[in-house]
Design a protein around this nucleic acid. Structure first.
Lengths: 277, 277
DNA sequence: ATAAAGGTTGCCGCAGCGTGAAGCTCAAGC
DNA sequence: GCTTGAGCTTCACGCTGCGGCAACCTTTAT
């Protein structure tokens, strides 16, 4: 028989840990003096302790170990738990690989002067969203902004009408005569169409939900928005995603300056992981 | 300007998180009403928040992110932190690979009926250890046990003299006329040699420290001890270790039965990782 | 005017795995 | 018989990153 101290020395654990394991009912001393509470461990228990330590090394939680030790456990159950744990570690390694990729991608980006104005892609899940919108062909970017202003003027109520958004339905590179869907998000239901001055008509519609949307926030007008798209493209490539759908631009802040310098836009691009498991 | 609730919705984080980040000085609202404490976030801050979220995805702690955002940070420092983090993740992945290997090794072992009497290898760091020992050639295993008993009889003081140990200096497979070093660990210093009955003499010595010792506890006499060695060998192979030194046997419990059935021995085998990094 | 949202601070909890300290009792060697 | 080291119990805390709730205050819409 060994006392806690001796047993702890031999087993290379702390006394505290032995008491703790006793307390949580994981590993109890062979005998406990009922009068003094002294714990006495048998030599044979060293094998048991080592078993616990070995299982802990596998990454099992003390709770799982307790169940494994319950000795009414079958070989199959044991195997099941191990396989489960293995799968879990493998998942975790996948996630870590992702992180490594992201870090590497960022290490590349650090050099390309981006540290001044860092663009950061974040994945979001976007729910379906009722909107009020119109679709029209505009000749320039500024004409689009002008329509945003009209919408805002017609719908000043912030509690009912949310942010303005824009979807470009024409091929992306055309900078003239773009086919745009312009509108604003609806915060509250129960609204129908509305005519704007200038012959445009806002119709009730719904933006579909997107499970995984790569988003980025850019500050500035046309030029910067393009770099935002480029950044999302780079990001997707580096992180093994695929662009999968029609991007949206949500305007967080409409410009006050004429040149749109203080426009703040969130670009949203649906993506999918390349190797889904 | 957005209130916490709006900003939280747009950024897909909880209000609680925004308040928390404010509290820990990581991300503060653009303005705070001094009278009411209301937080107001600007649209431009969404980019900042996204940056924080992106860095969090990399696995950086909020503390590290705060330092990265301190904006007196240079590109080099940024790169340094990222490389550091990457190295850390890689270390972690190494560890997880090890765990996977251990689990796989155990999955193999589960089937070979070991679940009844599981042998569990644990790595320990063993410090240098003063001993009192004798070296002699014995004709059988039992003769060795008999010497243990003599030693114990000569040194009954548990507080000064610790466990008995044995090191086999002859080639391992010889079961007859083994060249054994037999002795007991010294718990307290200040002791010199001692003669035993039977012409043996205990000399003061020291077992060297071993940085990484694979240990296993076996219960039983010669036969079981051999399976213990076999198990350590298997374990080393499965876990990419190499046997590296002279093994010791430390007797946790000397037998009372004649056949040594209740002998409990800890086998200690120095090992080294095969691919050290 | 009033009620419903939505804001604020502050404190507790949790999850996992223990470590540390205070205050008391016990065993053992002289 | 006394000291001393070792055991005992119990309470606390630490780490991270928030979540949740209570109690109270503002703003906004009706």
């Amino acid at each position: 028989m060994f006392t806690v101290g001796e047993f702890a020395r031999l087993g290379q654990v702390s006394k505290r840990l032995l008491r703790y394991y006793d307390e949580i009912n994981l590993f109890r001393p062979d005998q406990t003096d009922p009068a003094t509470g002294y714990r006495y461990y048998s030599a044979a228990q060293m094998a048991q302790l080592n078993r616990i330590l070995a299982l802990k090394e596998l990454g099992l939680s003390l709770d799982q170990i307790r169940r494994l030790l319950a000795d009414n456990i079958s070989v199959d159950e044991m195997q099941g738990m191990l396989l489960l744990k293995k799968a879990e570690i493998e998942r975790q390694m996948q996630a870590e690989m992702q992180r490594i990729r992201k870090i590497e991608s960022r290490l590349l980006a650090v050099h390309s002067a981006e540290s001044a104005s860092p663009l950061n892609v974040v994945i979001k899940r976007i729910p379906a969203q009722p909107v009020l919108s119109t679709r029209t062909i505009v000749e320039s970017f500024d004409a689009g902004l002008e329509i945003f202003r009209q919408i805002r003027t017609a719908l000043p109520d912030r509690s009912r009408y949310g942010l303005c958004y824009c979807i470009c339905h024409s091929d992306d590179l055309a900078e003239q005569d773009m086919d745009l869907e312009l509108g604003c998000l609806l915060e509250m239901p129960g609204h129908s169409g509305l005519a704007l001055r200038g012959g445009l008509h806002l119709r009730l519609g719904e933006l579909p939900a997107v499970a995984s949307m790569a988003t980025i926030v850019v500050q500035g007008a046309l030029e910067t928005i393009h770099t935002g798209y480029a950044e999302i493209g780079r990001w997707a490539e580096n992180n093994h995603y695929r662009l999968a759908g029609v991007p949206r631009e949500v305007s967080l802040q409409l410009p006050t300056a004429a040149d749109g310098r203080d426009l703040i836009t969130e670009i949203q691009f649906p993506v999918e992981p390349l190797h889904r498991d």
